[in-house]
Design a binder for these strands. Structure first.
Lengths: 107, 107
DNA sequence: AGGAAGTGCAACAGAAGTATTGCATGTGGG
DNA sequence: CCCACATGCAATACTTCTGTTGCACTTCCT
């Protein structure tokens, strides 16, 4: 199982346009930093740093393949982040519901 | 309805610990920047800037109340962000499934 | 009216993030 | 063996983010 990455780290990783570009590509198919760099407007080193951030957030996994290092998006990690948000949103809704009920009782 | 906020903006807003603290509090009940500042280790102005970021991301709404300005978390916005992530994750899974099926066929 | 409380705006300092260039290292194929 | 390709590491420049202080302005209440 993956570690319990702090929400802030995961969402900070998702909070950059270039990383979204990268993430969508490694979601489609595994790719190396060099391969991604040729189709993005940044250097290989920049891509590598982004991939490192995504990896630290637990959103992608590395996979050595000969002399190249391919990265692949982890669907379950994104799904877990989604579930976390949904749960918090549900908590807000429930609290709002309680407040509403109390207001009606006081009428 | 709320605008179509770009994913990067929304998740960047969620990518900060202090903002999570603030967001959880305004999720529990509406509060002003001043009120939040007394129970957080930062100044009112810093809190106000965080609230502005959250508002720009469509995650909280303002509500004038006499001379004070209260902020309230929008559960539906967080829920929408969750749905977006879940959809992307599902897309990755489907693509992986197709790749797996093709691999079996080639065996 | 006048003080207290709340907000708005601006300037500044420090930290962190993003991207670059340059060079070193490792690995696979002819 | 040697060359090409891919990655690793370091130094640097620039921008953005986070937080502070200081002051002006509005609004409520006595």
């Amino acid at each position: 199982m993956s570690q319990a990455h702090s929400p802030a780290v995961v969402f900070a990783a998702l909070g950059d346009d270039t990383r979204w570009e990268i993430l969508q590509r490694v979601g489609a198919r595994a790719a190396s930093a060099s391969a991604l760099a040729v189709e993005l407007p940044v250097t290989r080193q920049a891509v590598a740093r982004h991939l490192e951030v995504l990896h630290a957030a637990g959103l992608v996994e590395k996979e050595r393949h000969g002399r190249e290092l391919r990265y692949r998006a982890i669907a379950a990690a994104l799904s877990a982040a989604a579930a976390e948000l949904e749960q918090i949103a549900a908590g807000w809704d429930r609290r709002l519901e309680r407040l509403r009920a109390r207001a009606e009782k006081e009428d």
